[in-house]
């Protein structure tokens, strides 16, 4: 028999390394043709950090996104970054990028100011133009200024930026410490269909709301939410590295026995709401949600199973075998 149920879960997730002490740096170089090279030490592990960091550099410089190239060549030539973890890159490296781009821009504003008969402080830049903030008609091409500055004024158009957080020691008796930069929030509703004959659970619908502080790229935020939802679903229903935990017997050795969700398992209805409560010190108010998106689904799914069939299963993954055993136990 197929039975449906609904479950919800909420979550918090800290942005930044627990314990602090982490560093991210960035340099920005503006070339004579107005394009910019952004140098970072943060690795893109597929989450899209090159994209959002390039967007931040472009925004601050006032040039199109397509004019920014991103470089993370390695430890000899790149600025320092502790790493891509703790949902920290958008926040930490982002802050460094914003600072670096602003420094580079300020050099260009100095160069452009006399031509625009304004002070550098009165200038702004967007879409490849430098202009007087209160009189945008008075403008000059970003490329022209970059060329003039680099070649004729003999200036290096380079900016540097730094994010660094103090180390916060933990009191071993009370746990007192400052364990994050900012906190992100989430809520999710999941609807499942449970087949009580086979023990199979199908996730029909996932509605997710995540507070990202400020979405640098809403498409990538949705990608994180949906990707994390599917990964969380895998942990809730399918993935079991130790089928006979705690012993290591019968472990899967490959992806034909270690089962992860694929395209056919993705819920037909996935709806994402981006909520924005700006963080006090993140770039454009951003908070990190890269990790937490995978944390919410499991309790929501397992609670939805309870709603459908009336049994609590306190151990994940809820494989068909585990579910059938629980149903059997509840019957007897």
């Amino acid at each position: 028999m197929k039975k449906r149920g609904v479950g919800i879960a909420a979550a918090q997730y800290p942005t930044g390394l627990a314990g602090g002490g982490d560093v991210s740096q960035a340099y920005v170089k503006v070339n004579p043709d107005g394009t910019a090279d952004l140098f970072i030490g943060s690795v893109d592990i597929g989450q899209g950090s090159k994209t959002v960091l390039a967007q931040m550099a472009a925004e601050e410089l006032g040039i199109p996104y397509e004019w920014v190239r991103v470089h993370n060549q390695g430890t000899d030539t790149s600025p320092i970054c502790f790493g891509t973890f703790a949902s920290r890159v958008t926040y930490a490296t982002g802050n460094a990028v914003v600072e670096a781009a602003r420094e580079a821009r300020s050099i260009l504003f100095e160069v452009a100011a006399p031509s625009l008969q304004a002070t550098p402080e009165a200038l702004d830049a967007a879409d490849g133009k430098i202009f007087v903030r209160d009189d945008p008609g008075r403008s000059i091409g970003f490329r022209d200024v970059a060329n003039m500055a680099n070649i004729f004024m003999k200036k290096m158009i380079v900016g540097q930026g730094l994010f660094a957080r103090d180390h916060s020691a933990t009191d071993p008796d009370t746990g007192a410490c400052d364990p994050f930069c900012t906190m992100a929030w989430a809520a999710q509703l999941v609807e499942v269909e449970v087949d009580t004959d086979t023990g199979q659970v199908e996730v029909l619908r996932m509605v997710s709301a995540f507070d990202v502080g400020g979405a640098i790229n809403p498409m990538l935020v949705e990608g994180q939410i949906e990707g994390g939802a599917v990964m969380g679903m895998g942990a809730a229903l399918m993935e079991d590295l130790y089928p006979h935990y705690p012993t290591p017997e019968g472990q899967p050795t490959n992806l034909n026995t270690y089962i992860i969700p694929t395209a056919v398992d993705i819920p037909k209805k996935m709806e994402s709401v981006i909520v924005e409560c700006p963080s006090t010190a993140g770039p454009y108010g951003a908070k990190g949600i890269g990790e937490m998106t995978a944390n919410v689904p499991a309790p929501a799914i397992v609670s939805a199973i309870h709603d459908a069939v009336g049994v609590w299963i306190d151990e994940i993954p809820v494989t068909p075998e585990r579910l059938l055993r629980a149903l059997e136990k509840a019957d007897s």
Partner: peptide, 26 residues
Amino acid sequence: QTPTRRVLDSVYLIETLQACAEKAGV
């Protein structure tokens, strides 16, 4: 305050729950 004595700012769980409920038709 969190149990580690961090004072929270930009707290928004209530609004995030409300946004989720609204989208889900609850």
